[in-house]
Amino acid sequence: MSETITETKPVTMIQALNMALADAMAEDDRVLVLGEDVGDKQEGGIVGVTKGLSSQFGTGRVKATPISEQAILGAAIGASLAGYKPVAEIMLMNFTTVAMDMIVNHAAKLRFMSGGQTHVPIVIRTMTGAGFGTGGQHGDYFEAWFAHVAGIKVVAPSNPADGYGLMRAAIEDPDPVLFIENMPSYWTPGPAPERGSRVEIGKARIARAGSDVTLVTYSRATNDCLAAAEALAADGIQAEVIDLRTIAPWDRAAVFASVEKTGRAVIVHEAVREHGVGAEIAAELSDAFFGKLKAPVKRIGAAFCPVPFSKPLETAFVPQAAGIEATVRGIL
């Protein structure tokens, strides 16, 4: 797949992640890929992120697995304990629910429980996001669950270049990384990544500079924040958009520096608002900026219900640019 891509043409997230996996596998024999349908015999994954890998690196290093999420992650954890760097795919984030034990009790904790004698340098790739009419069990954002567990890092790129750089960094990271990919935006082209580049885990990006309000976001919601910022700019309101890129550990320094400047913050994510990542960030902001904020910190998330099916419901469920814009106007 990589030979059809030049470095300058825009690429999709699928292509960017494919390049990152191929580059990492070419550079380091210890990098392995496993998951359901990931081999070329199975068309390189259901959206094609792993296309070409098994042909290039062999079916020993690129393992198409049975539908066995616990065994997939157990295989990844075990292989990592022996020195490999597996990238395991859990097809959809909702399917992490049948393998929570491997993620939470084992991947995240073995370093600590072994007193640092072992560690689990795996990447767990998983996709999610509403928009495809898949209903209540195929599109949830569960990042808060994992961010709540000490010992695992959580990243969620919003664009192909970050996807590439974060994947390269995640594979090299000595700790387990949950890598969240947004499904509906897989095919949206963006600027091509620089081959070999890394995006440091734990570092946010200022996606748009501004002085009036800080929008803190990640994953696909970044695009909605940018659209809202564009609309606000027409009225002379300058919103700064911070794309966290890493949810855990999140870049406090970047967010604090922005809010120090703007005095207002809105946190936007596609996960339901209740008990979400936004609550953690809002609490930290109120702690750091109590009395200095010009307005209460606001949180925007999906409606507190299962992901609905019917199009108008699904559209209304997910945060939209218009809602973000209205929230910002409400605190100015």
Binding site: A75, I77, G78, L81, A82, H106
Partner: peptide, 13 residues
């Protein structure tokens, strides 16, 4: 949970 991880170690082996 000893089984899936031992399986992974066997894969590495």
């Amino acid at each position: 949970s000893s089984l899936p991880i031992a399986t992974g170690l066997a894969w590495a082996a």
